[in-house]
Nucleic acid binder design. Structure first.
Lengths: 333, 333
DNA sequence: ACCCGCCGTGTAATCGATTTCGTAGCCCTC
DNA sequence: GAGGGCTACGAAATCGATTACACGGCGGGT
């Protein structure tokens, strides 16, 4: 591949001049055109690696995502990618697969690659490497998940409105024994959702006793199924279940189906995170929709602010309840 | 951040020695330990940008995916990422969003970043930039989609077995008027699936006339819905439909539902690409499952072969029919 | 007419690593 | 004991860009 020296020779100028023309400085029509012609003829493209070494800017952002196959995170990643690209950055995606060790591995790699900034939707509580990121001075923004003890802005959705709406919805439909499936105590997101849901239910005179709080470290399909099974084995099984993750909800649905229980007739089901195909499940699922694309966009902007040294605050966007049929009420058209 | 010079000073050796220790050459216990101690104390990590400039190897692979929000491609990307990471490469993902222009944009960026190799699941027929890739000498492997005129190995699934199984399945269930929803003529994948399906049907005495071949350039939800609508308006509407993409299938289902037609009673529906949540739709969808993760893995291996100068051939892995209830037969447990 | 300053350009340093080449010291052999 | 070969290490070139500094020429001000 042609390099800047080849271009300089062909245009009969120095490499400095070529560099200046390409970066918009010192615009003298005649020289400028000779250089551009040479660039054209040789099909020259600047080597980003060399440029990055010299300028200490790679033009790449890193995104650590907890689980790429989870549709919520896919959409988030898509939104981030879109926004980053439109602002001239490219995106290196690291998939943590919900494993803290793998996450740390990836963060290290990205740091070694000298990305300009890092977005992290953290798996678990693995904050050891995160404090290293902060220490290294690489701009960091947390996405969707808070990490205690890490001094970085966090962009995420606020479930309060949605959960209040949900509690009202369930109460109005006569549900008396709500339950929740969450990540285990200690994970900030899980705890927050639990507390908000409990508070919202209380306002409608509904209790959420600990026995109807099912939790599992396995945030996937099988975890959700196992927890749902335990809930159904209770002396007083729930008549409404909120699954705080779409994968766990799928597992929960499988368990219901396996036991021949009908949704919403016998048990109402609500999912945290709305996903396009929830319209197509049997029955269509009532869901709490986070403003995913907006989150992605905001995260990129916050990160760029940090990169450019501008002040950057945390962002909190409201989530909303999307009513479908899995709680019993027909959707209002 | 500490650099190699700092380490050298602290250890009282030259930078060359530090480099050698870190790369496993010239192992002399005493010096070696001094260097490693200095590395430890300074928290030194080699600058990958500088290393890449010198060695002309970035340790990064590029992946251009046609649509990140399509679950099939998500799983593919996940598999590729997994395999790449386990082999010491990181992955830069570019999302083409099914837009050739954006795809070309991204390929250029990745080339500028001097990635070691490129995997492309091409959107449309945008092969202009692809021939540039070949010309640039960057190792290239096509993924899932063939691109005519591009001299690069292609890793993809062979639908012949699956479509033969499907034709038999439909015939056995008494379906007489099969139809297909495909990408428009001119897209290799679409044409191939059409021809294979037609041939397989013929073996069971079933015809697939052109009027029951619905195509749309919009490979998304709305495209699928529009085509399904046209098929249903036929004088002799189909009693079985194969949608060659999972997004289009969702659109098709919406149209069926909107018209109050029951699946499988009135129309059988089959989807190309199996996705985890197809178990949860109403009814569970019979699908053609591509060996997605194996495809991802094979693609990375093929690409590495090219990178290392080993011979690399195209790979063709068989797809299979996964029978559920959307064609009428209960699944055999 | 002379000098100052500015503008466009070239020369060379620089970013942080790898790698070639050269050299000093050591051991072994004859 | 001298010479040859090997080993461990350092000095310096190198990758391909950006950029600080130097310099020559030209225009304008006095």
């Amino acid at each position: 591949m042609a390099n800047i020296k080849d271009v300089a020779e062909r245009a009969g100028v120095s490499v400095a001049t070529v560099s200046r023309v390409l970066n918009g400085r010192s615009p003298v029509a005649e020289t400028r055109e000779r250089v551009l012609a040479a660039v054209q003829e040789l099909g020259y493209r600047p080597n980003n690696v060399a440029r990055a070494l010299r300028t200490a800017r790679t033009g790449a952002l890193g995104l650590i995502i907890s689980d790429l196959t989870n549709p919520f995170f896919t959409e988030l990643a898509d939104a981030v990618e879109d926004e980053a690209r439109s602002l001239g950055y490219s995106l290196v995606i690291g998939n943590a697969g919900e494993r803290p060790v793998q996450q740390d591995d990836y963060i290290r790699t990205l740091l070694d690659r000298r990305i300009d900034g890092l977005l992290v939707s953290s798996a678990g509580t693995g904050s050891a490497m995160l404090s290293e990121v902060v220490a290294s001075g690489t701009p960091l923004v947390l996405l969707d998940r808070l990490v205690p003890g890490i001094d970085a802005p966090c962009v995420r959705a606020d479930g309060r409105t949605a959960l209040t709406e949900l509690a009202g919805h369930l109460a109005a439909l006569g549900r008396r024994r709500p339950a929740i499936i969450v990540a285990p105590a200690g994970t900030p997101t899980g705890e927050e959702r639990l507390e908000l849901f409990r508070a919202a239910l209380a306002e409608h005179g509904l209790a959420l006793p600990d026995e109807r709080v099912g939790s599992t470290p396995d945030l996937q399909h099988t975890g959700g199924r196992r927890v749902m099974s335990a809930l159904l084995d209770l002396a007083e099984p729930p008549d409404a279940v909120l699954a705080t993750d779409n994968l766990m909800a799928l597992g929960a649905m499988d368990e219901l189906r396996a036991r021949g229980l009908r949704v919403p007739d016998e048990v109402a089901l609500v999912v945290y995170d709305d996903v396009p195909w929830f319209t197509h499940t049997d029955p269509p699922l009532t869901a709490i929709a986070q403003p995913t694309r907006e989150l992605g966009r905001a995260a990129v902007h916050t990160l760029l602010a940090r990169i450019e040294g501008r002040p950057a605050d945390s962002v909190l966007l409201p989530a909303h309840l999307v009513t479908r049929r899995s709680c019993g009420e027909p959707p209002t058209p």
